[in-house]
């Protein structure tokens, strides 16, 4: 039986190992330790709230997060009242009203995050033809640097990318409107350096260094890409304990029943 488990494990590993090595001319992504990694990891609420502040004050000018609703922010420790206040500070397009016209109203917790641009064309027109990706799932979409495509792989990438803007080496040919980043595949990225340190003034008094901001915003985006992660891991622990007990009893019953055949 143990051999069988070994075989299954080998098969699983092979499947993992067979994952394609993507063309990656960029530098290897440094590994960080994250509050949410490991089977018992949870999101650091304070870091996620600081990360939300960075997103609000910096990233959200270009990047949408269409899958998120203001009410979801309860998940990173904001109270219902705080969420209502955050939502009410936004102007949401609603309508049509009785005159058949769209109108602006203060946001509600059930509203989706207000996007910076009404549509893709408007974004491209405003940003030299570049389209900033929606950030709702960016962590899961960039999790390749982790062998199990876990959330920390994507967080490591975002954290590194935000700190990877450098002067291009001598002789490196840059295209127009592009920026040099040591971690971006191909090293040329349309996004100009968004964070340099002290871009926000943290409400909780934490010093807003560049590594701190990058770490916080990566934490926030990780929560955003899978808000149910804590429930998943917690449920998983209970399920595994149950399965281990069940399998143990089944094994004992199997031994007993088969005792007279062997």
């Amino acid at each position: 039986m143990s051999k069988l488990v070994l075989w299954l494990a080998c098969a699983a590993l092979l499947a993992l190992g067979a994952a394609p090595a993507r063309a990656q001319e960029a530098q290897p992504i440094p590994k960080n330790s994250w509050s949410f990694s490991g089977p018992f990891g949870t999101f650091d609420r304070a870091a996620a709230q600081r990360g939300f502040q960075v997103y609000e004050e910096v990233c959200s000018h270009c990047h949408s997060m269409n899958l998120l609703h203001y009410g979801d922010l309860v998940g990173i420790g904001y109270t219902e009242e705080e969420v209502k206040a955050i939502a009410a500070s936004k102007q949401v397009t609603d309508g049509p009203n009785d005159q058949g016209e769209m109108y602006q109203r203060p946001g509600r917790p059930s509203d989706a995050f207000v996007p910076p641009f009404p549509n893709e064309k408007a974004a491209r027109a405003a940003l030299n033809g570049a389209l900033p990706p929606d950030l709702s799932l960016i962590i899961k979409a960039r999790a390749d640097s982790s062998p199990i495509k876990g959330l920390s792989g994507g967080a490591d990438y975002v954290d590194a990318l935000l700190q990877g803007f450098k002067e291009p080496p001598a002789g490196f040919k840059m295209s127009a409107n592009m920026n040099y980043n040591i971690y971006f595949p191909g090293n040329q990225i349309a996004m100009p350096q968004p964070l340099a340190g002290d871009d926000v003034k943290y409400a909780d008094g934490t010093k807003a260094t560049l590594p701190q901001e990058a770490h916080d915003v990566a934490t926030f985006l990780t929560w955003a890409s899978e808000p149910t992660m804590e429930e998943r891991k917690f449920t998983g622990a209970k399920v595994l304990i149950f399965l281990l007990v069940m399998t143990g009893i089944l094994y004992a019953a199997k031994r007993q029943i088969w005792a007279d055949v062997h």
Binding site: V245, M246, I249, L250, A252, A253, Q256, I257, A259, D260
Partner: peptide, 22 residues
């Protein structure tokens, strides 16, 4: 027939436990 050293009650208990837990 069952080996003498395994009592019938223990065998019943295990089978019932296995059925119940499943």
């Amino acid at each position: 027939p069952m080996d003498a050293h395994v009592s019938a009650t223990r065998r019943d208990f295990l089978q019932i436990a296995a059925t119940v837990v499943t």
